[in-house]
Every structure is written in structure tokens, then in C-alpha cells.
Amino acid sequence: MTTEVRPRRRSRRARQTREVWRAIATGLSAGFLGLIVLLAAIVIVIPKVAGATPMTVLTSSMEPTLPPGTLIVSKPVAPSKIHVGDVMTYQIKSGEPAVISHRVIEVRSRSDGTFTFITKGDNNDAADPEVVQQQVRGVLWYSVPLLGYVNSALTGEQRIIVVPIVAGLLFCYALYMVITGIIAAVRKRRAATPR
């Protein structure tokens, strides 16, 4: 009898160990999937729905608040809604695509009803040249440290290819986890039923 009991205990222990590892793997997989979905929402979905633009901080001019590699999302606002202290994104030269994001240190109202702004990087000694309202692209809505590196690595064309591939792989992996869970449950039920 002792020789029969020990193998059963070992097989039960081995089964329990496998179940624990499977539960850990499932939990980690679900957490990873949740993280990917959250990042996709932060970088792609939320800005697109809100009409905002995700950008990456490339220089140290806004340190320590916005160090290089930070993802910033700039949301369009009316020039009259921009206040001292806001981090404003604006075209370096009017009509050109290159932009910069610096803190507004002064707002000037002109007699014709338009506004101009004086900005300065938090880490810079001198203020920037005056910015006219036609250059303004928006103000900082939210930022996420280090996520800008991912944003910079994936250009528009790459995102169109990479996002569906990653989503497809995650879906396949989730399907695999569901199927293996069902198979394990069926095996466990069969093992528990007396013959």
C-alpha cells in the first residue's frame, strides 16, 4: 500500500504545482494584456477621440517636469483659454510642422482681439521669441514618462502595421489560454468522476 500511495501523492502534488504555475501564467498574461490595452488607449485611442496630438519630448528644455522620452498629449484650445503656467505647444515658425512645447510665462492681449504669448522652457535661462496665436497648436493635456520612446519608434505607417499584428497575437494568445483552461477543466472533471 505504501508504494501505491506515494506515487499518487507525487502525481497530486505535481498536478497542484502545474495548476499553480498555470494560474500564475494566466494572471501574468491577463495583466500584460491589460497593460497593452491601457497603453494603446493612452497613446492612440484617447488622443484620437479628443482631437489631441501625442508627441515625444526630445530635449531637456522642460526638465525636470517633462524629461526627454516623455509622451505628451497636446489638446487644441482657444487662445483666450491659455493662461500663464500652461505648457503650450506651438509651431517654431508659423506654417511649418516643427513644434515645441514650453511653459507660458506671459500672455499679451492686442487691441485687435488677438493674443501673443511669451514662453520659456523650465530648464532654459532665456525666454523664447514671441508666439502669435496662429502658431499655437494646443496646451498640455496629460503626459506619461518614458512612453514617448515608444511613440517615437513607431511612425504612422509602422503603427498601421504593428498595432493590428500585436492585437492579433494577443488575441491568439488569449484564445490559447482559454482553450488550455477548458481542456484542463475537462481533464480534472474526468479524473474526479468515479468509474
Rank of each mutant, 00 (worst) to 15 (best):
Thr3Glu: 15
Pro7Tyr: 05
Pro7Asp: 08
Arg8Gly: 02
Arg9Glu: 00
Arg10Pro: 05
Ser11Met: 09
Arg12Ile: 10
Arg13Asp: 01
Ala14Lys: 09
Arg22Asn: 09
Ala23Arg: 14
Ala23Asn: 12
Ala23His: 03
Gly27Glu: 01
Leu28Thr: 08
Ala30Gln: 08
Leu33His: 02
Gly34Pro: 09
Gly34Lys: 10
Ile36Gly: 02
Ala40Met: 08
Ile42Pro: 07
Ile44Trp: 00
Ile46Tyr: 10
Pro47Leu: 00
Pro47Met: 03
Val49Ser: 04
Ala52Arg: 03
Met55Val: 00
Thr56Gly: 10
Val57Cys: 06
Ser60Thr: 15
Pro67Cys: 06
Ile72Ser: 03
Ile72Asp: 02
Val73Ala: 01
Lys75Gln: 15
Lys75Leu: 14
Pro76Ala: 08
Val77Pro: 07
Ala78Gln: 15
Lys81Asn: 13
Lys81Pro: 04
Lys81Glu: 15
Ile82Ala: 03
Gly85Lys: 11
Val87Ile: 15
Val87Asp: 07
Val87His: 11
Val87Glu: 00
Met88Phe: 00
Gln91Asn: 09
Lys93Trp: 06
Ser94Leu: 08
Ser94Cys: 09
Ser94Ile: 03
Glu96Tyr: 10
Pro97Gln: 08
Pro97Trp: 06
Val99Cys: 02
Val99Lys: 07
Ile100Pro: 00
Arg103Lys: 13
Val104Phe: 09
Val104Glu: 02
Val107Ser: 01
Val107Arg: 11
Arg108Ser: 00
Ser109Cys: 01
Ser109Phe: 01
Arg110Gly: 00
Asp112Leu: 02
Gly113Glu: 06
Thr114Tyr: 00
Phe115Pro: 06
Phe115Ser: 05
Phe117Thr: 05
Thr119Leu: 03
Asp122Tyr: 04
Asp122Pro: 08
Asn123Phe: 06
Asp125Leu: 14
Ala126Lys: 08
Glu130Cys: 01
Val131Gln: 06
Val132Thr: 15
Val132Met: 02
Val132Tyr: 05
Val132Ala: 03
Val136Gly: 06
Val136Asn: 05
Arg137Glu: 10
Gly138Ser: 01
Gly138Arg: 04
Gly138Met: 06
Val139Cys: 10
Leu140Phe: 12
Trp141Ile: 04
Ser143Asn: 13
Val144Pro: 12
Val144Trp: 05
Leu147Trp: 00
Leu147Tyr: 00
Gly148Glu: 10
Gly148Ile: 12
Tyr149Ala: 04
Tyr149His: 14
Leu154Gln: 04
Thr155Gln: 11
Glu157Arg: 06
Gln158Gly: 04
Gln158Asn: 02
Arg159Gly: 07
Ile165Ser: 07
Ile165Thr: 09
Val166Ala: 14
Ala167Tyr: 08
Gly168Ile: 12
Gly168Val: 13
Gly168Phe: 13
Gly168Asp: 04
Cys172Pro: 02
Cys172Ser: 12
Cys172Ala: 15
Tyr173Gly: 13
Leu175Tyr: 09
Tyr176Val: 10
Tyr176Ile: 11
Met177Ser: 14
Ile179His: 04
Thr180Arg: 15
Gly181Met: 02
Ala185Leu: 13
Lys188Tyr: 03
Lys188Thr: 14
Lys188Phe: 08
Arg190Tyr: 01
Ala192Arg: 13
Ala192Phe: 10
Thr193Met: 12
Pro194Phe: 09
